[in-house]
Design a protein around this nucleic acid. Structure first.
Ligand SMILES: [Zn+2]
Ligand SMILES: [Zn+2]
Ligand SMILES: [Zn+2]
Ligand SMILES: [Zn+2]
Lengths: 162, 162
DNA sequence: AAATGTATTGTTATAATATAACAATAATTG
DNA sequence: CAATTATTGTTATATTATAACAATACATTT
């Protein structure tokens, strides 16, 4: 199991994360015949402004700054759209959204999340799927979706504990 | 990885689940020097009234029926108390709480959850811990808590799909 | 038992998150 | 262009959760 982005490495070139995410989004929208409207693209950019999951209500002021006088339903619609295309993941324990690092290959939501700085690093869980499939099959459960959250303290925040 | 309760077997003796949960709670409160007050015990009973996670606001009317004229803070306090002792788990994607089937041995929250009937069956994930520890160690992440949710359709609900 | 301190619950108000319902506009299609 | 569909705007409200302070119950010490 591996981290699939550099979220915990504060030296990484984050512009590269953002431009990659936008490129991916355009391709995926194209392929699925969906439109990446200005609002949707902006919401995606905002979600990708860091590796810290953002709540819908944190996006609203940023949308306003960009000249969109949007209300909650508009933000939730954009988030739903991006979520359905697998461009973002929802972190249930935070009620917040974070960009997906590998949307070209649909996969479960799985993250390490720092309780201090809130940074969420996506992890790759293919090695766990066999176990999950086994327990599901054993009980006749049709597995459709997975949310995996590993919560704790990232390396940076461990250093600066009180 | 195994299911650690019979949530998906509607024929199981659920009174046994409830009485076991209450017995466990009394022992655990005793051992930790905490008080299982009437409200806390009732909230635990209500959470255990089925294997479907319940939200705080679903508990309020049931508390009222039992003669407690409680407001949200009281319910949340009782839920927090039970959660801290490991007697219940929170299902992040549902904003709801469900009884823990094995509180004597503290462990991560891990469930199969039916999107149709909402039944949540706790699963045992010790075989996954090595993978989780490995990814955490690799990135200097201090793992403290885990939320694992497998979402889909239970066997009963697969049968009665439209 | 009375006094004191702590834990628990009551109470009111409000914050934070999310959706319903319908209107207006923009984009696409025929 | 007209008709249709998709997207966004708008208002209102539902749902989930917590802050702040008062009152009460319980435990501990004297
Ligand atoms: Zn980045
Ligand atoms: Zn951190
Ligand atoms: Zn049961
Ligand atoms: Zn079901």
């Amino acid at each position: 199991m591996l981290e699939i982005n550099d979220a915990f490495n504060s030296d990484h070139n984050h512009d590269h994360c953002v431009s990659g995410a936008l490129d991916n989004a355009k391709v995926i929208c194209q392929e699925s015949g969906q439109r990446l409207t200005p609002i949707r693209e902006l919401v995606l950019r905002l979600v990708w402004s860091s590796h810290k999951p953002l709540g819908a209500y944190e996006l609203l002021p940023a949308l306003a700054d960009a000249g969109f006088n949007s209300a909650p339903p508009t933000v939730y619609r954009a988030l739903d759209f991006l979520h359905q295309l697998g461009l973002i993941h929802k972190i249930g324990s935070l009620n917040a959204f974070v960009g997906c690092s590998n949307p070209e290959h649909p996969h479960p939501s799985a993250f390490m999340i720092c309780r201090e700085c809130k940074t969420a690093a996506e992890i790759e869980t293919s090695e766990l799927q066999e176990s999950f499939n086994r327990v599901a099959n054993t009980h006749g459960f049709q597995l459709e979706e997975e949310n995996i959250e590993l919560l704790g303290l990232c390396s940076d925040c461990r250093g600066s504990e009180s």
